[in-house]
Nucleic acid binder design. Structure first.
Lengths: 188, 188
DNA sequence: TTCGGATGAGACACATTAGTCTCGATTGGT
DNA sequence: ACCAATCGAGACTAATGTGTCTCATCCGAA
C-alpha cells in the first residue's frame, strides 16, 4: 500500500518538505502549506512538527538554496581558470538549478542571514565581473551593476526557455556566455 | 480639505483603482484589495462597486497594460525605419513602463483574452526579430525564441537596475540595444 | 511479540481576506 | 436650494489559510 514508506524515514521527511516547498513555491510563491505537505507526501501536522510556521520553512528553504548554490559554485574556484571559463562553468552549474530557485527572485520576506548569503553570492558574481573586465572580456565603460544584473537574468532566461522546450538544455550555457560576452565585449 | 476631490470624479475612481493595483501588484503581487483601495484613495466598498471581485480587477488591469503597450508600440510602425531603429525605439518606449507592468511577469491567473493579447505582443517582437535577422543585425544561427526571451528580460532588467538607481534611466535603452545586438550580432 | 517514537488524519480555534450591505455625507447638475 | 447619484466608513458574513491538539496507526528496535 505504501512502498515509499521505507524511504520516508525521520530525517527524510524534513528534506522532502523543503524540496516540495522549493519546487512548489517556484511556480506559485503563495501556495498554502497544505499543498506543500501534500506535494511532499506528508501530513499537514508533520510539517508543523518540523517547522514552527511558514516563515521558518521559508527561511530553511532559502538557506538550502544558498547552500546548494555555494557548493556548486565552490567547485569553480579551480585556480588557473580564466574568468571566461569560470563564467561558463558557473552558467553550466547554475542553470539546471533554475526550477528550484526561481522563487528567490522575489526577495520578499526572508531571513536576515539569508539576505546576507544572497549578498555574498552577488559579491561573487561582482568579483567575476571585475575579473572579466580585467581580462578584457567585458568593456570597461559598461557599468558593473548592469553586467551583474544581466548575468542574474541570463540564468533565469536560460531556465525559462529550456523549461518551455524552446531551447536545448545543452545549448543554454553556450548561448548565455555568447549573449553576454559578445554583447558587452570590446567594440570591434 | 480635499483639493483632489474635484478630480476624483465618477469615471476617475475606476481609473485610480486600476492604476493603484498596477503599481501595488507590481511590487507585491498578493497585496489585498483593501490596500489597493487605500492606495487609490478610495473606499473598499467603492472598489467592489466598480469590480465584481479580485479576478475582474486583475483582468482589467491586464487589459489596460496591454492596451497601453499596444498604443506605445503602435507609434513605432514608422515606415522606413530599420529594424535596429525600431528595436531601440521599442526599448525607449517600453522601459519606462516597467514599474507598472512587472506584475505581468507572472502569467498566473489572467483572462483568456489577455493571454491572447500577450501572445500578440510576443508575435510583434518575433516579427521584429525576424527583421533583425534579415537585416543582418542578429546572427541566423541563434534561435529566435532565445532572442525574443532575451528582449523580454532585457526590458525587465533595465527597469530593475534603473529603479534601484544603479543605472541612469537615459542610458538604459542604449545599454539594452548594445547588450542584445553586439551579443547576438554577426561574429567578428 | 512488545514497546516507543514518528506519522497521518482530522477536529478545532484563530487571523486574514473577500464580498455584501447600510447609512450618512458630499458632489454636481437642475 | 434641491435632488439624484456616488462615495466613504464601518458592520457583517463567508471563505481560506494558519497553527495546535488528539488519537489511532505504523515502523523499527529490543
Amino acid at each position: 500500500m505504501r512502498p515509499e514508506r521505507s524511504e520516508a524515514l525521520r530525517p527524510t521527511a524534513r528534506r522532502a518538505i523543503v524540496d516540495a516547498a522549493m519546487r512548489l513555491w517556484s511556480v506559485n510563491p503563495g501556495a498554502p502549506l497544505h499543498e506543500v505537505a501534500e506535494r511532499a507526501g506528508v501530513g499537514r501536522a508533520t510539517l508543523h512538527r518540523h517547522f514552527r510556521g511558514r516563515d521558518a520553512l521559508l527561511a530553511e528553504v532559502a538557506h538550502t538554496c544558498l547552500d546548494e548554490m555555494r557548493a556548486v559554485v565552490g567547485v569553480l574556484v579551480t585556480p588557473g581558470a580564466s574568468a571566461r571559463e569560470r563564467l561558463r562553468g558557473m552558467f553550466e552549474a547554475v542553470i539546471p538549478l533554475g526550477d528550484r530557485y526561481s522563487f528567490l527572485q522575489r526577495e520578499s520576506v526572508v531571513d536576515e542571514e539569508a539576505v546576507a548569503g544572497y549578498r555574498a553570492q552577488l559579491d561573487w558574481v561582482a568579483a567575476l565581473v571585475a575579473d572579466l573586465k580585467a581580462e578584457g572580456d567585458v568593456a570597461a565603460d559598461v557599468p558593473s551593476a548592469w553586467v551583474v544584473g544581466q548575468i542574474d537574468q541570463l540564468v533565469w532566461t536560460a531556465w525559462n526557455e529550456t523549461a518551455r522546450g524552446r531551447i536545448a538544455a545543452a545549448d543554454a550555457a553556450t548561448l548565455a556566455v555568447r549573449t553576454l560576452l559578445e554583447g558587452l565585449g570590446e567594440r570591434t
